[in-house]
Computed example of a mutant assay.
Amino acid sequence: MILVSNSLLITLIHQDSRLHTPMYFFISVLSVLDVCYTTTTVPQMLVHILSKKRAISFARCVAQMYIFLLFEITESWLFSIMSVDRYMAICHPLRYKVILSRWACLLMVGICAAYGVVGGLCDTFFAMHLPYCGPNEIDHYFCEVPAILKLACADTSLNDLVDFIVGFNVIVVPLSLVVIVYANISATIMKIRSVQGQIK
């Protein structure tokens, strides 16, 4: 269902020239990320449920973990970029399309993806370079860092630090940016004297 709805949304935005604005560009990128996000876990989950083959190779586990983190981190930063888009549209409407040109939008999405690549690599690299000498089973249908770290037979304090730093940069920093941007939007709206202007 997610795949179908996101695919329809992407197609609609692509086909309708009235929707070729920065806001809809970011929404279409978000839809692509949602599709990719889902396809990293759902196929393995279906194999896990529908067949008796419940094992996944080490290489597939690493790939799944990295790809999932890549899309998760990219999506988190994309939300903060989308809030900046709303700020520009509301607080600087006359300069909106000039400041958020096609190249600027692509650059911002590229920066989000770069955060995803680096954050995903850090978490995956440190998790996969631990020695695993005990049971090799996790109680999940896909590979995620916390579940994998429980299998390690070495000190995972460095991994916990890396997880904290990556998590801080994935959750706290983008969320803080969103809160600051929407506080500025609210302050700008409150400066408008007429109630009709505020509603608009």
Results as ranks from 00 to 15, higher is better:
Ile67Gln: 04
Met128Ile: 07
Cys105Leu: 04
Gly116Lys: 05
Leu106Phe: 11
Val84Tyr: 15
Phe68His: 14
Cys91Ser: 15
Leu50Ala: 11
Tyr37Met: 13
Thr124Glu: 06
Val62Glu: 07
Asp123Gly: 11
Ala63Cys: 09
Cys122Glu: 02
Cys36Ser: 12
His48Asn: 14
Ser80Thr: 09
Arg60Gly: 09
Ser101Thr: 04
Arg54Lys: 14
Trp77Ala: 01
Asp85Trp: 01
Gly120Cys: 01
Phe68Met: 08
Cys61Thr: 09
Ala104Val: 15
Ser101Tyr: 04
Gly116His: 08
Ala89Val: 11
Leu30Glu: 11
Ala114Asn: 09
Ile111Met: 09
Lys52Arg: 10
Arg102Asp: 10
Arg95Leu: 13
Met45Arg: 12
Ser101Ile: 08
Phe58Asn: 06
Ile56Cys: 07
Ile56Glu: 12
Thr38Tyr: 13
Ser57Lys: 06
Met128Thr: 14
Leu46Gln: 07
Met128Lys: 11
Val62Gly: 05
Ser76Ile: 03
Gly110Val: 02
Ala59Lys: 14
Leu121Pro: 01
Thr40Leu: 04
Gln64Gly: 15
Val35Ala: 10
Lys97Asp: 10
Leu100Lys: 06
Asp85Lys: 00
Val84Asp: 08
Ala104Arg: 13
Ile49Trp: 10
Arg54Gln: 15
Glu72Met: 03
His48Ile: 00
Lys52Asp: 15
Asp34Lys: 11
Ser80Tyr: 04
Ser83Cys: 04
Leu106Trp: 03
Ser51Cys: 12
Met128Glu: 01
Pro131Cys: 03
Met82Cys: 12
Leu121Thr: 08
Met108Pro: 05
Leu30Cys: 06
Lys97Trp: 00
Asp123Tyr: 00
Gly119Asp: 08
Lys97Met: 09
Val29Thr: 09
Ser101Lys: 06
Ile67Asp: 00
Gly110Asp: 05
Phe68Gly: 08
Phe79Leu: 12
Ile99Ala: 11
Leu70Thr: 02
Val117Gly: 01
Phe58His: 06
Ile67Cys: 06
Gly119Met: 09
Gly120Ile: 02
Leu78Cys: 10
Ala114Asp: 02
